[in-house]
Measured scan of single mutants.
Amino acid sequence: MASQGTKRSYEQMETDGERQNATEIRASVGKMIDGIGRFYIQMCTELKLSDYEGRLIQNSLTIERMVLSAFDERRNKYLEEHPSAGKDPKKTGGPIYKRVDRKWMRELVLYDKEEIRRIWRQANNGDDATAGLTHMMIWHSNLNDTTYQRTRALVRTGMDPRMCSLMQGSTLPRRSGAAGAAVKGVGTMVMELIRMIKRGINDRNFWRGENGRKTRSAYERMCNILKGKFQTAAQRAMMDQVRESRNPGNAEIEDLIFLARSALILRGSVAHKSCLPACVYGPAVASGYDFEKEGYSLVGIDPFKLLQNSQVYSLIRPNENPAHKSQLVWMACNSAAFEDLRVLSFIRGTKVSPRGKLSTRGVQIASNENMDAMESSTLELRSRYWAIRTRSGGNTNQQRASAGQISVQPAFSVQRNLPFDKPTIMAAFTGNTEGRTSDMRAEIIRMMEGAKPEEMSFQGRGVFELSDERAANPIVPSFDMSNEGSYFFGDNAEEYDN
Rank of each mutant, 00 (worst) to 15 (best):
R65T: 10
P354T: 06
S486D: 03
Q459A: 00
D480R: 13
E434P: 12
Y40C: 01
S310I: 12
R75N: 09
R246Y: 14
G282L: 10
R38C: 09
S50Q: 15
G185V: 04
V183H: 08
E53L: 04
N334H: 15
K305C: 11
R436Q: 04
S165H: 02
V190L: 03
E494M: 08
I201G: 03
S402T: 15
A123I: 07
R221L: 11
Q311V: 07
L276H: 13
Y313F: 11
K31A: 05
T437F: 02
I388Q: 07
H140A: 08
S377V: 12
V270F: 04
C275K: 05
S413H: 04
E495Q: 06
G356E: 11
I365N: 08
N202L: 11
S438V: 14
G212Y: 02
L328A: 05
S413K: 11
G209D: 10
V186A: 03
G169N: 10
R461N: 02
M105L: 14
Q58G: 08
P161E: 00
V109Y: 02
A442T: 15
M440L: 08
G94F: 03
L418N: 10
E465R: 14
L379C: 14
L259P: 02
R8Q: 15
L226K: 09
W104F: 15
G282K: 09
L341V: 14
D72Q: 04
E18F: 08
R199Q: 07
R117N: 03
E114L: 02
S345W: 04
S28R: 13
T15W: 04
V183T: 13
K103R: 11
F71K: 13
M189F: 02
T146M: 03
I33E: 09
V183D: 07
R156W: 05
K325I: 02
T15C: 06
I63A: 15
R384D: 00
Y52L: 01
L341C: 12
P277G: 11
L328W: 06
R175Q: 02
R102Q: 03
D145G: 12
V352S: 10
G349V: 11
L466Y: 15
T62M: 01
L328K: 08
F429S: 02
S407D: 06
L306F: 03
L56P: 11
T396K: 09
C223I: 07
E115N: 09
I201T: 10
R38W: 13
S170N: 05
A153M: 02
T390M: 04
I444G: 06
Q409A: 15
S84L: 12
T45Y: 01
K214N: 13
S335K: 02
A179T: 02
K87D: 02
C275A: 13
G490R: 13
G462C: 08
R446W: 00
A442V: 14
I425A: 15
K351H: 12
L256E: 08
A181E: 08
R156D: 02
R391N: 05
T430F: 00
K77E: 02
S413G: 07
K357P: 03
W104V: 14
N144V: 10
W139T: 11
A85P: 14
Q399S: 06
K31T: 05
R243C: 03
Y111M: 15
F420Q: 06
N498A: 06
L154G: 01
N124G: 14
E115T: 07
S245H: 01
S486Y: 11
S170G: 09
D16L: 00
E115C: 05
D16S: 08
M481S: 06
E434I: 07
L466V: 05
Q398E: 00
E434A: 12
R221I: 09
K229R: 03
I316P: 07
R175H: 04
T437L: 04
I365P: 01
I194W: 09
I253W: 12
D51S: 08
R416F: 00
A471K: 01
G30I: 00
L154D: 02
M163H: 02
Q12D: 01
R75Y: 12
I406A: 13
M374Y: 10
G282V: 09
Y10F: 11
I406S: 13
S217N: 11
K184P: 11
A323Q: 13
R216V: 04
A260K: 03
M1K: 11
K227L: 09
P477V: 00
R38I: 06
N142R: 05
D16Y: 07
Y78D: 04
L49V: 14
D16K: 01
R199G: 05
V109F: 10
T23K: 05
A428D: 00
N124P: 10
M13E: 08
G228Q: 06
R470G: 00
P354G: 08
G490C: 04
A179E: 12
A493P: 01
F479A: 12
D491F: 03
I257V: 08
D34T: 07
V476S: 00
N483D: 08
A260G: 11
P410Y: 00
C164W: 02
T350Y: 00
Y52R: 07
L143T: 05
R317L: 04
Q168A: 15
D240C: 03
K90P: 00
E320P: 02
A22N: 04
Q12K: 15
M481I: 05
R446I: 05
L264T: 13
M136L: 14
E494Q: 12
Q459K: 13
A123F: 03
P322L: 07
T430L: 01
Q308G: 14
P318G: 13
M167S: 11
E292H: 12
P83W: 06
A336D: 13
F488M: 07
P423G: 14
Q405E: 07
V186F: 14
S457G: 15
S314G: 14
V155L: 06
V186E: 05
G185S: 05
L68W: 09
D160C: 11
E24F: 01
F489I: 02
A428M: 06
T433K: 01
G249Q: 09
G54F: 02
L379K: 03
A442H: 00
E24I: 12
S165M: 08
M440W: 14
I138M: 14
R195V: 06
K91W: 07
D372Y: 05
L68C: 11
I57C: 07
N211E: 08
R152P: 07
F230N: 05
N334S: 10
R99L: 09
R75I: 01
M105R: 08
M456A: 14
R400T: 11
M448Y: 02
V109G: 07
F338M: 10
S9D: 00
M189R: 01
T45L: 15
Y111H: 13
E64Y: 13
C333D: 00
L47W: 02
K87C: 07
Y219F: 10
L266S: 07
P423C: 08
E81H: 09
M447R: 12
A182Q: 08
T437A: 15
E244P: 06
R361K: 11
R389V: 01
M426H: 01
G404H: 13
A278C: 13
Y219C: 08
A366H: 10
M196G: 10
E254S: 07
E114K: 14
R195K: 12
Q311L: 00
G431P: 09
M196E: 05
G490K: 09
I116H: 01
E449H: 01
G462I: 00
T360K: 07
A123K: 01
H272G: 10
A2T: 00
A85V: 11
N125D: 08
S274A: 04
W104H: 03
Q12P: 00
I425K: 01
R384I: 01
N473D: 00
M66R: 06
W386K: 09
I475T: 11
P95Y: 07
R162S: 04
F429I: 06
I316L: 15
Q327V: 10
S69M: 08
A471G: 02
S326K: 07
V285F: 01
S359T: 11
C279E: 06
N370R: 10
E80S: 10
G169M: 03
P318V: 12
K452C: 03
N224A: 09
A153G: 09
I57A: 12
A323L: 14
D480N: 10
R243S: 04
S170K: 06
S84T: 14
S287E: 06
A323S: 13
N250S: 12
E64A: 06
N492A: 10
S262I: 06
E252Y: 08
R243G: 04
L379I: 14
R156L: 01
G462S: 02
K198T: 11
N224P: 06
Y10L: 14
H82E: 00
H140F: 06
S170Y: 01
Q311E: 00
G200R: 02
D497K: 00
Q415R: 14
F479S: 14
S482F: 02
K48R: 04
A70S: 15
S377A: 12
N397K: 15
A278T: 09
R102M: 10
